Amino acid sequence: MYKKNIGISIYPEFSTLEKHIEYLKKASDYGYNQLFMSFLHLSKEEVKNNLSNFKKIIKQAKKLKFYVCVDISTQTLDVLKENIYELKIFKNMDVDCLRIDTPLLPVQLSIITHKVGIDIQINASIDDSFAQNLLDFKPIKHKISACHNFYPQQLTGLSEEFFNRTSKKYYDMGIKVSAFVGSHHGIYGPQKTQVLELPTMEKHRNMSISAQAKELWASGYITDILIGNEFATDEELKELAEVTRDTIEFEVPKIDISNIEHKILFKDLHFRRGDASEYMIRSPLTRALNKGQIIEPRNNDKESLNFGDVVIVNKNDEHYQTELMIIIKDNTPNINKKFNYLFTINKEELSLINKIEDSTWFKFSPKNN
């Protein structure tokens, strides 16, 4: 429905202006185009002391064509002596969007979209009727989006069930939904103390940044993904930027396979057959694309296969030879030694298997060592 984007978060009250600008430029070079900033957690004195740097960072971000979203509250507006129906300070800073995390009336947000012109972002991590009430007041709908919270405190992030339920709710309303992943090296966020990882989902807290993003996009509900904490490393910025956004993709370790197996695994298109088996995900196109090719069996292959094992049918079953499969049930027998075992999908990506529904496309890519 929407183009999928990646973004970063910057907290001007920490570090130097020069370092924030350098981080912004580096992210831009990797293809990032979303910027999240927050007034929400700042005191009156902190707003006053950091307002100049906010303006300078946003000015640079706009030069680099970033979409800038600023988190505010009614308290922020009071501190800035700002009229909710004018929002002059944010318009003058060229802010694209205001994330409003504390309650304003739905009719007030609708008026902002018509009168002020700034986009409005609401909290996607709340399962209530606010979004529907807002839509009832007929805002300019393309100016409304939703973004999940991030969670600095361990064990407080969203459960996968709650995340999917609330994300689907906003998605079904036609509202674009964003979420956060956490850097394992950035130590700055909206809290006073240093903290690692600012993910939306708790299960992501210790996962690689690419695995976090893959699962968010594989949910089918998330458009934009932002790194919640600052400063992500160059490696993390690159890793997230290289994640395939529209197709489920599995990372493959270095493996010793034949040329035809290599071609089937990495070059061919894969999608799940509509008549689903409880034992395996079948990728039928590989048979059509490799007619006449011979897959020699291996003498030492597994007799029993488990969830996450990726295999190709060998010449012991001539009719189905060259068909690639992902095993989805433990202790699946390797009948007549017809399956050549290639590798097992890594632990962080196993949950992606459950996102492969009937007729879903997926792919494999070699791990960058």
Rank of each mutant, 00 (worst) to 15 (best):
K168C: 14
V116A: 12
M1G: 10
Q121Y: 09
E45K: 11
F266H: 12
H204D: 00
Q321R: 07
N354Q: 15
M93A: 11
V243M: 07
D246M: 14
K115W: 11
D96L: 12
K19W: 13
I264W: 01
E202Y: 00
H262Q: 15
E161R: 09
N53C: 15
D96R: 10
I260K: 04
G182A: 02
L80W: 02
N33M: 12
L324S: 06
L87H: 04
K63N: 06
D256K: 12
N49A: 12
P152K: 01
Q153L: 04
F163I: 01
E239V: 00
I257K: 09
K4E: 11
S52A: 12
K81N: 11
N149S: 01
K55L: 13
K238S: 10
P284D: 05
V252K: 01
F36W: 14
T200I: 01
K329F: 10
F339H: 08
F163A: 01
K48Q: 14
K56V: 13
I187D: 00
H319E: 14
I118D: 05
V95I: 08
F162C: 07
N316A: 04
N259T: 07
I72L: 12
I260S: 12
K141F: 02
N206D: 00
K302Q: 06
I10W: 05
V47Q: 12
T360A: 11
I335N: 14
D101G: 08
E22N: 07
Y30T: 13
L87T: 09
N299K: 15
I111Y: 14
K4F: 11
R273G: 06
P297V: 11
A218E: 04
R245A: 13
V243C: 10
V313Y: 08
S283P: 03
Y221W: 07
K115L: 13
P139L: 10
Y23S: 07
V252Y: 03
S73E: 09
L87Y: 03
L17M: 11
L104A: 03
K25I: 07
D224R: 02
